[in-house]
């Protein structure tokens, strides 16, 4: 069964269609690269997956569980919405780390707040927090930042901030981790360290949806590629096919422009 199944997703902003009938599926452990020119709707798609935007119609299911269905009009309680949201993680283009917290605290904050909902919370608090803390340290170590646990975001480079943001998203063990142009806000010399982290996630079979303008990287790291134009999926397939042998004229033109 597919871990992620998106069907018939539509979204428009004040009458302008931004996503038209978008559908795809993703197997557990796969990574999907989404490419497309500016304004084609890539961010909007990720935002719909993370419930930051409400699709006008369509259906999203995770491991067989329907997490969004526009034909189901019953209101979803906030608590349930938050639970569904946790199937997904999102790494933003502009990191969005919390400036008043250290790298470690950025990674532990959400987990600690969620722990309060754990039935044994008040009693097992110390134990739960210790687990969260240990997990966060391990994650920060895995992204190469064990020496920066106590650093505040403004004391970190863009590449380091983005790696903290990745650790922060991983800390809640999402089923699907989404990246929205994770290196676009970085100086060119800093993109490498972030791409390396994502590559290693791919090789350890983290399920990912990656929006990127780094074509070479997309080709290497993904199991599937989607080319989206004007809010619709124009071409999809294995990276060798989409990049090596694109069938559609629009894909060809796009790739010519980006193969800089």
């Amino acid at each position: 069964m597919a871990i992620l199944e998106v069907t018939g997703l539509n979204k428009s902003f004040s009458g302008t269609a931004v996503l038209s009938d978008v559908g795809f599926s993703l197997e557990k452990g796969e990574s999907l690269a989404i490419i497309g020119s500016s304004g084609s709707g890539k961010t909007t798609l990720l935002r719909c997956l993370n419930f930051l935007e409400l699709p006008d119609s369509g259906k999203i299911s995770v491991a067989g569980e329907t997490v969004f269905d526009s034909s189901d009009r019953s209101a979803v309680p906030e608590r349930e919405l938050r639970r569904r949201r946790l199937h997904f993680g999102l790494v933003f283009q502009s990191f969005n780390l919390f400036p008043q917290y250290t790298a470690l605290e950025n990674v532990t904050l959400a987990g600690r707040l969620l722990a309060r909902e754990n039935p044994g919370y008040p009693r097992r608090r110390a134990e739960l927090f210790a687990e969260i803390d240990e997990n966060a340290r391990a994650l920060l170590d895995s992204v190469g930042l064990i020496s920066k646990l106590g650093a505040y975001p403004h004391e970190l480079s863009g590449g380091q901030q983005q790696r903290v943001a990745i650790a922060r998203a991983l800390a809640l063990s999402p089923d699907i981790l989404c990246f929205d142009e994770p290196t676009s806000a970085l100086d060119p010399e800093l993109t490498g360290e972030v791409l390396r982290v994502i590559r290693s996630l791919a090789s350890s079979h983290t399920t990912m949806v990656i929006v990127t303008h780094e074509m070479q990287f997309a080709r290497e790291v993904s199991d599937k590629v989607i080319f989206i134009d004007g809010g619709a999926i124009v071409e999809r397939g294995a990276p060798e096919d989409v990049f090596g042998n694109p069938r559609h004229e629009r894909t060809k033109r796009f790739l010519e422009r980006y193969s800089g």
């Binding site: 938050r82 997904f88 969005n96 919390f98 959400a110 707040l113 969620l114 922060r168 998203a169």
Partner: peptide, 20 residues
Amino acid sequence: GQYEAGLVLGMTKTQIFFKI
């Protein structure tokens, strides 16, 4: 983005207000 980062991490609006 601060608010949205809180949301995608499963925080409630109240938690986002007070903690972030």
